[in-house]
Nucleic acid binder design. Sequence first.
DNA 1: TTAAGTGTTGCTCT
DNA 2: AAGAGCAACACTTA
Length: 299
Amino acid sequence: MKACDRAETGALIQVNAGAGGRKIEIPMPELPDVEGFRQLVEATCRGKTIARAEAPDPGILEGITPVTIARRLKGERIATAARHGKHLFVTLTRGAVITMHFGTNGSPRFLEPGAADPPYTRFALGFTGGEHLAYVNPRRIGRVGLAPSADAYIAAAGLGPDALAPQVGAAFLAQAAGRSKRAIKALLMDQAIIAGIGNIYADEILFQAGIHPETPANALSTGEIGGLLRTLRRVLETAIACGAGSEEGAALLPKGFLLPERHRGRRCPRCGGPIATTKQSARTSYFCPRCQKARLPSD
DNA sequence: TTAAGTGTTGCTCT
DNA sequence: AAGAGCAACACTTA
């Protein structure tokens, strides 16, 4: 059975596209989605020369003014697109990088010459051939900036290693978990420890690993840590392979994923029991109380 | 109609 | 001082 032969709706929200009322679907940008964005930008923008850069909403710019970023980018050529956690880096041939974070519902769109920028375009690059790269972000939570290099930005932001980096192994995870009594879900979502996992994929990983989201990190056994790490990699890689973050929006996830059932009143794809929710500071966790048993702190 | 809900980051508070 | 809680944001649903 192929990994993606089940058509299911991925991590999506719907918003009305301006006064026209046309509904558009936007992926929630965690690691797999941003990897999809990276592939899109790499495939469409590589080698193109920037004719102009516009920031109709200066509020999304991180430490730079619209005039300055326009001046710095004009005449630059796109080299590659790189990703670290939920951040996208558009690297330029002279070495600097455009940094992008998509907040809760941003995404990049590539447009052919003559096409209008989509609604909620907060930043746009126009290329010499007339094409555009639009940074679309309805809720305006997200940032675009300019940095000397991706590594410099990552260090300054204090981000941990990318969740799929070789460095994030069982020993790494065991060390991070062993010295913290925080809920394992909070640990997985801490970008300073591991970069790339958000509320939705944290729920998916813990569901597939059979671990309750509120389990204290230091209560996990070595075996559970190993299983959690393997599940983490498999879930993220499967989501990437299934097209998370593609322009079509929906990732076509395999059967058995919690993500499409991540709504009130849905049922567990494994045991058929009701999905439960808990809340910690306005973040909702969806889980199956039968497949993910609660546990008391052990210290 | 009003209030709550959606997720991420960064700030405040303890 | 680690960890919890909330504001910002635009829009939908109850």
